[in-house]
């Protein structure tokens, strides 16, 4: 018997984001890899514009997340504060013996993994006002000189323990305890909407969150 009950099972009822109380409001949903995912909030163009010109935020809680523990090359060194691209995801070092895997990394060559997809919520924050939005609820230093793209920081996010991953110049991923999902969505929406932003669906988001394998480019 393993801890299989931790994992969202294929073939079961569609999985629901821990942010759904907030993020599914007014959303057009579609099923993707067993999860109900926000396709758009009915205005893909406006959403695109918001994240290009101000800031957009999207519920990405369905991104696979796992803890990798033990030894191994995938864990890397936490001292540099950088995530390492692995497959279509990142390996984010926490300690010399533990890392957080985010996205479709594929199976690590060594070490033991534990699925944390359901344990952690995720919000992507994208756009020229992304840093300012994050500064409204998070004290981590996100200046590019300190935290360049691929920078990874465990830290306090809106007074709860979480992680911040910089996917690109203007693209960040907040990762936090799933039980705080509704709260976190409210906090991000409050901060972002004051800066001219809006929630966005997957359609408006995709070009902004560079897959790690691609070249990281500055957002227009």
């Amino acid at each position: 018997m393993s801890a299989g009950f931790l994992t969202v099972a294929a073939g079961g009822p569609p999985a629901r984001s821990p942010l759904a109380e907030g993020s599914h409001r007014g959303a057009e949903l579609e099923e993707r890899d067993g999860w109900m995912v926000v396709a758009s909030y009915g205005d893909a163009e406006g959403e695109s514009r918001a994240r290009r010109e101000a800031v957009g935020w999207a519920d990405l809680s369905h991104l696979p997340k796992a803890e990798l523990s033990g030894a191994g090359t995938w864990i890397g060194s936490p001292a540099e504060g950088l995530a390492t691209p692995r497959g279509d995801g990142w390996s984010c070092p926490l300690t010399p013996r533990r890392a957080l895997l985010v996205g479709d990394t594929g199976a690590p060559p060594e070490g033991a993994t534990l699925d944390l997809t359901s344990s952690l919520g995720a919000i992507s924050i994208v756009g020229p006002e992304a840093r300012e939005t994050i500064a409204r609820f998070c004290a981590l230093d996100t200046r590019a000189a300190v935290m360049p793209p691929f920078g990874f920081r465990p830290g306090s996010i809106a007074r709860t323990p979480g992680y911040l991953l910089r996917a690109g110049e203007e693209a960040f991923l907040l990762i936090f305890g799933a039980a705080y999902g509704a709260y976190m969505w409210e906090v991000v929406a409050d901060a972002g909407s004051r800066l001219g932003g809006r929630p966005v669906g997957a359609a408006a988001l995709t070009p902004a969150l560079p897959a790690p394998r691609q070249e990281v480019t500055t957002d227009a």
Binding site: A79, G81, P96, A139, R153, G155, S156
Partner: peptide, 10 residues
Amino acid sequence: PHCGVREVTD
């Protein structure tokens, strides 16, 4: 020692 400088409240 792993994450770097943070506020003491963390």
